[in-house]
């Protein structure tokens, strides 16, 4: 655990010292502000809950995009810059490298998600929504970001170039979300989210419950599962690199 904290601490400090993290965070917050004013609030009288729902809906997509972009900073960057060699030749387990890198990016994306909290707070100026609904929505955003980063960690363990990691993460996320639409098209009579295929879609199936203010154990288990499997697979990939 000491090594996990060490690697995560160095990585987080790098996020705070280099511009790439701020640029991605800044772009996300800019678009969230734009969406809140232009789409969620709009120019017509709208129910406060509707404003929150619209805001969370688009924020979910933006959080996924942010997670995908952050995947360039994960393992692929260490490989591209050659610093992975330092970690690999130190008495550090592969799982500690994966977890350290992941936790640092998770902490940063959590900060980015929380930084937009002032937007739903603005609803209270002219309306009223449940604090629980906001908490549920933000938990969903956090888990969506966490799962995207975990998938990004796995993708970046497979390639050497940060840009390829972004493309691969985007591809994996798109495939997961596409399962919802495949399920919907193949069986229109059944809600896609209740089919086996549809349960693989983090945003369409699971995040929507959080967005609607519903926190279910099955959704929490899904996100925990996808994070665990992705990080385990990343560790296995790193271990296998000694055999190449």
């Amino acid at each position: 655990m000491k090594n996990v904290v060490l690697i995560a601490g160095r990585e987080l400090s790098s996020y705070l010292k280099t511009p790439s993290g701020y640029v991605i965070a800044g772009v996300m917050l800019f678009f969230q502000g734009l969406v809140f004013n232009g789409y969620a609030v709009g120019d017509q009288p709208t129910l406060s809950t509707e404003v929150l729902l619209r805001f969370l809906e688009v924020s979910g997509g933006l959080t996924i995009v942010t997670g995908v972009l952050f995947s360039m900073r994960l393992l692929a960057e260490e490989k591209a810059s050659g610093t992975m060699t330092l970690l690999f030749t130190s008495p550090v387990h592969e799982g500690e490298i994966v977890l350290g890198k992941y936790l640092a990016s998770l902490a940063f994306i959590a900060l980015v998600v929380l930084a937009s909290l002032y937007l739903p707070a603005l609803i209270f100026v002219n309306g009223k929504v449940s604090y629980g609904h906001i908490a549920s929505g933000y938990l969903g955003l956090f888990l969506l970001g966490a799962s995207t980063l975990a998938v990004g960690t796995f993708a970046s363990s497979l390639v050497k170039h940060p840009f390829l990691a972004v493309l691969l993460t985007g591809g994996f996320v798109a495939i997961l979300e596409a399962t919802f639409w495949v399920a919907r098209i193949s069986d229109p009579s059944t809600p896609a989210s209740s089919t086996i295929l549809g349960t693989f879609a983090p945003y369409y199936t699971h995040f929507r419950n959080f967005r609607n203010g519903i926190v279910q154990l099955s959704d929490l288990a899904f996100f925990a599962g996808i994070i665990y499997v992705s990080l385990l697979a990343s560790t296995r990939v790193l271990k296998s690199q000694r055999w190449r």
Partner: peptide, 30 residues
């Protein structure tokens, strides 16, 4: 790994870190 120090053909350094911070990090890794 506890016994070795390795310099690959490209120095494995984090460019944004200071020399001291990097060496402290490398020491803690070991």
């Amino acid at each position: 790994r506890k016994l070795i120090g390795f310099l690959p053909d490209r120095p494995p350094v984090y460019p944004e870190m200071t020399v001291k911070a990097f060496l402290v990090f490398a020491g803690k890794l070991r």
